[in-house]
Design a protein around this nucleic acid. Structure first.
Lengths: 230, 230
DNA sequence: ATTGGGCGATTGTTCAACAATCCGACGATT
DNA sequence: AATCGTCGGATTGTTGAACAATCGCCCAAT
């Protein structure tokens, strides 16, 4: 038992690359840390990220921070202003429509494709998660439950690329939420929508589910545009 | 007239960032160069890219090459194997379905949205471009004309994010084409499809255009899967 | 009030070095 | 002879320091 993975590894191959004992590079860890701070609102949109400050804070080299910035910039979480620095991305009113256009394309397409029973079950689980959070009056959990719901919908398509696109869009939206804090009632609004969409799925009517989802996204965009002083 | 942009710049603002006299950073230029070589098949899928070799070839630092790699990796044109190097991405048979899933989502959604007359005109232009290329027996031009067609369709949605997603997917597909060279007849097949789709658009029937496009994408995926040893 | 010129700070890029890791070859063991 | 450990070379990952280029800003001069 001195080399357990070597013994098992012979049979594997491509899987090895995916399973990799997971020792993310330092740059990846820096990016992850920044992503976290971005997600929980510690870094607000428009804020500047100084290379040297972050390098010192996290105890890494400036070059490494720079690589992490490249990752985040590719995810649009951060924008680079040449010779001026990187800033936390901030969505303009035009970006709202843009983001929702992507969501309509990705989510509706995925839900219309149907999806296996297990995938539908995952959607149901997200709906219940949301109800539980509502019952517990946990706004935070309510928000993440909603994201789980929409990610579960996209996951129905079974496409890695679609999943990452969705993940990026949701990350962008999270950024936006922190800028304009929405009231508590806002979150509860979509609970019935999710339930109805899920029921349509369970009833084996993905087209209807798609229509409902589309209508929901349109309404959601309107509300967002209104909140964000259009 | 010593500082023309400064005089004009006062009235501008956000536009300045976009118009920026266009001095891409060295890392960006390296990435662009590699993207070019990738596109024209100078670097085949699976090929290894050594940092030091490229750094020396292009006369830049290893760190800069590294940053360029980060860009390309974010675009999935290249994959990083930790401690082993970066390799030109190579699509597996599973990736084919994945890529087409994204295309179905993006393209069909965009075309169903309708789009202004100018945007439809752009689609028409791409169709004619394809016909001209076919008449001239120019395979290369035929391929790019087809890409223009599909990009014009996505452009109908008027979403920057959707445009870049489509650009990335097309770049991935181009990579794939180089791996398995397809015969000349393959390219001509879709000319009538494009024409029909375009006519539906011009007739003001985006839903029909969407159905046609969807059918085309399904057929295209099948063909690709067949060519690429399913 | 506007123009113009430094000035400090930060980024862009390079270079050199070192540890960590991987690959392949060579040699030892059964 | 085949397998296993080990060693060495090569490449990546990361660091630290250095320097030029650029930007924003303050301030002086007109």
């Amino acid at each position: 038992m001195t080399t357990p993975d070597a013994a098992a590894g012979s049979a594997l191959g491509a899987a090895a690359a995916r399973l990799r004992v997971a020792v993310p590079s330092v740059a990846d860890r820096v990016a992850a840390e920044l992503r976290l701070q971005l997600a929980e609102g510690a870094l607000l949109p428009g804020a500047r990220l100084t290379e040297s400050a972050i390098a010192e804070d996290l105890g890494v080299s400036r070059n490494t921070v720079r690589e992490a910035f490249a990752e985040l910039a590719a995810e649009r979480l951060v924008v680079r202003h040449p010779n001026r620095g990187v800033f936390v991305a901030s969505l303009e009113s035009g970006d709202i429509h843009d983001v929702y256009t992507v969501r309509r394309a990705v989510e509706v397409s995925a839900i219309r494709a149907g999806g296996s029973p297990e995938r539908v079950a995952a959607v149901r689980a997200a709906v219940e998660e949301g109800k539980a959070a509502a019952a517990a009056d946990d706004e935070e959990a309510l928000g993440t439950a909603n994201q789980h719901f929409h990610r579960a919908i996209v996951a129905m398509a079974g496409s890695r690329r679609l999943d990452t696109i969705m993940a990026q869009v949701l990350a962008e939206m999270r950024l936006f939420f922190h800028k304009a804090t929405v009231d508590a009632h806002f979150y509860r609004g979509w609970l019935p929508d999710n339930e109805e969409i899920c029921q349509a799925l369970e009833a084996g009517d993905p087209d209807r589910a798609g229509d409902l989802l589309l209508a929901y996204l349109d309404r959601s965009e309107e509300r967002q545009a209104a909140v964000h002083g259009d």
